[in-house]
Write a protein that binds this DNA or RNA. Structure first.
Lengths: 208, 208
DNA sequence: GTTTAAATTAAACAGTTGTTTAATTTTGTA
DNA sequence: TACAAAATTAAACAACTGTTTAATTTAAAC
């Protein structure tokens, strides 16, 4: 699998990322990409082979990026609760900073057929889950966290809450009276992040 | 706004719903719909005016359906905690039974331009939020629930968790060793539902 | 400067798209 | 039966789709 791209290729990939994220894969034509990137239509086929392969190249390019961004924070000198806070902050920031590709992955690769192509993405997910597991086990050993949590269901709550909120931007802007896009962006980074942190911590600590 | 459709129109709408949900709006051609519904291509334009208007008609047809499905359970003789459980069960079942249209709404109406078209959907959301608010306020008055919860962020956690899980079906089937689709479906109705209920209850009850 | 490979181009390709047309069939009504 | 409205059809429309071709320009190597 090719993972190195030249400047021109990266330029195309970045334009494609924006357009795919905005209008979807099917909703974006090669001609639009070419016009936006100020290149000839044939260049996409020349460099990537096909539109489908362009998408695949984009996924490869971006997910190897995400892999690099990963950190293992279980080694830090924090108590489990602080670690959960930090991990969620990491989650939120990673998605925020990589909106485009996350949106594309979310939309274009939600069907089963395509999903097995995403080995790199699954590696990222597995690594994240491992980090989370380590933190929770530590918290359980210290008697802070309850022992009957289903750990694999926690990332869906973190990611799902974030996605659902940001994907219904217009609705929540109106509901929460957030005038500008900056207000919204700011709300996500503060209140929404805190909400997710509180939710997960509550789930881990609460005794019924 | 037209809300009554004849048999033929409903037949087309149902076929369109399935295809839009499976392949997206842009990924579905009128000719495919026509073939699947065993009608002439021109009939879609004849009945609905355009492909775009067909989608709008589908949304209208389905969301008025959703509106009917709504119930107000605040009046029931249950304690707030049980009401939360019930409300979440209602949420989960409603989405489960209306997979198609929810998927379409999720995918096709996540962009800001289109979102204000969805007055009916917003009414459903507002009604749901009101139900939730009533239950939480009752719980707060009885001293069971904490008073610093941001109520509008709870539906995103409920819906988001559900969506993120079901939209990454292949990944979670593998992760949780769910062999068949029935196993998955069953997991959603039991374990995932319980997880969401526990999460929200913990958030409402937990004292930091 | 010549040669060779890489990059870039405009044009053409064949297929699909949503939509409209005009003709025909079906249906309901008087 | 006769008439009018509604439903249905095949065909055509122009615009757009992803991709390929063959010619031309640029760049690098010798």
């Amino acid at each position: 699998m090719k993972t190195d791209f030249n400047e021109k290729q990266i330029q195309i990939l970045l334009i494609a990322e924006t357009l795919f994220a905005e209008n979807g894969f099917e909703g974006t034509s090669i001609r639009t990409i070419a016009k936006e990137a100020d290149i000839n239509v044939a260049m996409v086929s020349y460099y990537f082979g096909s539109k489908e392969k362009l998408l695949e190249a984009l996924i490869v390019y971006r997910t190897s990026d995400l892999k690099i961004q990963m950190e293992n924070l279980s080694v830090e000198d924090l108590d489990p609760i602080e670690k959960i806070d930090k991990l969620i902050e990491l989650y939120v920031n990673r998605i925020r900073c990589n909106k485009g590709i996350y949106r594309i992955l979310h939309f274009e690769f939600s069907s089963e057929e395509k999903e097995d192509k995403l080995k790199v993405l699954n590696e990222v997910r597995d690594k994240n889950l491992k980090s989370l597991e380590a933190i929770i086990h530590e918290g359980q050993q210290k008697g802070i966290f309850r022992k009957d949590v289903v750990i694999p269901l926690i990332p869906p709550t973190i990611m799902g809450t974030f996605f659902h909120f940001t994907m219904n931007k217009a609705y929540f802007k109106k509901l929460l009276v957030l005038e500008t896009d900056e207000d919204f962006e700011n709300y996500v980074q503060t209140k929404l992040k805190t909400h997710i942190q509180q939710t997960i911590k509550a789930l881990l600590i609460y005794e019924s």
